[in-house]
Amino acid sequence: MKLRALLFDLDGTLADTDRLHEQAWLEGLSRYGIQGDHHFYQTQISGGLNPEIVQRLLPQLSEAEGQRFIEQKEARFRELATTVQPLPGLRVLWNWAGERGLGRALVSNAPRGNALYLLERLGLVFDHIVLSEDLPAGKPDPLPYRMALQHLNLAPQEALAFEDSPSGVRSAVGAGLPTVALTTGHPPEALAQAGAFLCIPDYTDPRLWDWLRALG
């Protein structure tokens, strides 16, 4: 395989933001009497699409009320994310890819406002940005990653995906992409079961670099 592009999820993959999303979600849900914890967040929220989550957890809300809940939750997240930093080793990988002329695409379920906010904070500029809110289906459907490959004019075996949730891994693997999973929010067993061939805590892991060097 000749590697020609890197495809990244956003939250939990470029930066360890899952704990901030968890706090914002659980604060919002507590106002409706739902007292969640970390396990609840992992199993009921992480990696999902906002409208689907709200419809499932707060079915009593009208569409307009649900949208207001989402907007308030995301505003709270941005308040919490003012000092967010890239995961260790990301800058090195980013520069390594740039030096080799590899394409870089963002593929995320995040709302556009959050995505642009975090990318500005992290100082990252992608060749292409694919957001699920612009598509008929989001992760875990493979469509977002298929669209990224289409934008880059690449076959799946020419790219490498980085994800952090089982639903994100299933999306990337479903599109035929070899996928590395970051263990920032989920145990490696769940990520491997979803299809990740390598699970790493961050981008300094020597196993990632051994694999990249093996590609030549």
Results as ranks from 00 to 15, higher is better:
residue 181 A to R: 01
residue 159 A to S: 10
residue 156 P to M: 01
residue 5 A to C: 04
residue 133 E to G: 09
residue 150 Q to P: 03
residue 178 P to G: 00
residue 49 L to C: 05
residue 97 A to W: 03
residue 208 L to F: 09
residue 201 P to F: 08
residue 123 G to A: 01
residue 112 R to Q: 15
residue 214 A to N: 13
residue 176 G to P: 00
residue 1 M to N: 03
residue 94 W to Q: 02
residue 121 R to T: 06
residue 199 C to F: 04
residue 184 T to R: 00
residue 195 G to H: 07
residue 100 R to C: 12
residue 74 E to S: 02
residue 143 L to E: 12
residue 36 G to T: 04
residue 141 D to N: 15
residue 124 L to Y: 04
residue 129 I to M: 12
residue 104 R to D: 06
residue 50 N to V: 04
residue 70 I to P: 04
residue 96 W to E: 11
residue 35 Q to N: 08
residue 189 E to P: 07
residue 65 E to N: 09
residue 72 Q to S: 07
residue 7 L to Q: 09
residue 102 L to R: 07
residue 79 E to S: 10
residue 121 R to S: 14
residue 180 V to S: 04
residue 159 A to C: 10
residue 130 V to E: 13
residue 106 L to G: 04
residue 18 D to M: 05
residue 182 L to M: 09
residue 126 F to C: 05
residue 148 A to S: 12
residue 8 F to A: 06
residue 136 P to T: 13
residue 23 Q to P: 01
residue 163 E to V: 05
residue 47 G to Q: 06
residue 23 Q to K: 14
residue 109 N to T: 15
residue 7 L to R: 04
residue 74 E to R: 00
residue 158 E to K: 05
residue 214 A to D: 12
residue 188 P to S: 07
residue 58 L to E: 06
residue 196 A to N: 02
residue 132 S to C: 15
residue 41 Y to W: 08
residue 56 R to W: 11
residue 215 L to N: 07
residue 139 K to N: 11
residue 126 F to E: 02
residue 68 R to M: 07
residue 101 G to F: 01
residue 31 R to Q: 15
residue 35 Q to R: 11
residue 183 T to C: 06
residue 98 G to V: 00
residue 180 V to I: 13
residue 184 T to A: 10
residue 132 S to Y: 00
residue 28 G to C: 15
residue 56 R to D: 14
residue 166 P to T: 05
residue 55 Q to G: 14
residue 203 Y to I: 05
residue 121 R to Q: 14
residue 30 S to D: 14
residue 136 P to S: 12
residue 38 H to F: 01
residue 155 A to Y: 00
residue 65 E to P: 04
residue 110 A to V: 08
residue 164 D to N: 06
residue 81 A to Q: 05
residue 23 Q to D: 15
residue 28 G to A: 14
residue 5 A to E: 05
residue 119 L to C: 06
residue 28 G to L: 12
residue 112 R to H: 12
residue 109 N to R: 03
residue 144 P to W: 08
residue 176 G to H: 00
residue 199 C to W: 04
residue 100 R to I: 14
residue 41 Y to D: 09
residue 194 A to E: 04
residue 17 T to P: 13
residue 149 L to G: 12
residue 150 Q to R: 11
residue 205 D to N: 08
residue 31 R to L: 14
residue 14 L to W: 06
residue 166 P to I: 02
residue 11 D to T: 06
residue 109 N to S: 15
residue 39 H to L: 11
residue 36 G to M: 02
residue 97 A to K: 01
residue 216 G to F: 02
residue 120 E to I: 02
residue 37 D to L: 03
residue 28 G to Y: 03
residue 100 R to A: 15
residue 130 V to K: 06
residue 89 G to F: 09
residue 61 L to F: 08
residue 163 E to N: 10
residue 1 M to K: 03
residue 79 E to T: 07
residue 201 P to W: 07
residue 168 G to K: 02
